[in-house]
């Protein structure tokens, strides 16, 4: 079984994305193959240089940097969404990669879960 968790909402405004991240960590805890796809406004999770101290939140950029340590397989950024939000490949955080054509990607996992 392979799982893809899709985050399509911007960070910091809502809790939904963090819950999705928790879900990914829980799957990794039990050695279940899991990857994360960021699409739509969700690609803003992957922008380098986030400093949310003044809004008193933890940095999702730093949280995501723990993903490879915990065994999360891939951090994927939908390429078309990145273009829409002005994100070039070198502005993505370390470990994240561009993915082309997310609907084909959705079809290649046994389980796809959108964060709410």
């Amino acid at each position: 079984m392979t799982t893809l968790i899709v985050i399509d909402q911007a960070p910091y405004g809502l809790w939904a994305g963090r819950e999705a991240l928790d879900m990914a960590f829980s799957l990794a805890t039990f050695d279940q193959p899991v990857s994360l796809l960021f699409t739509g406004a969700g690609v803003n999770w992957l922008r380098k240089g986030q400093t949310p101290d003044a809004i008193e939140q933890k940095s999702v950029e730093r949280n995501l940097s723990a993903a490879p340590v915990f065994g999360i397989e891939q951090l994927l950024a939908d390429e078309a969404s990145c273009q829409r939000y002005g994100l070039s490949p070198d502005e993505l955080i370390d470990g994240a990669n561009m993915a082309r054509g997310s609907s084909g990607l959705l079809a290649s996992y046994t389980n796809v879960i959108f964060s709410n």
């Binding site: 990794a28 805890t29 730093r62 949280n63 723990a66 915990f70 065994g71």
Partner: peptide
């Protein structure tokens, strides 16, 4: 150090062992 870098503690015991 882990917490300083990632702003998160390993969320479960198994991930703690893994880290």
């Amino acid at each position: 150090e882990f917490y300083g870098k990632h702003e998160i503690a390993p969320p479960s015991n198994r991930l703690f062992v893994k880290a």
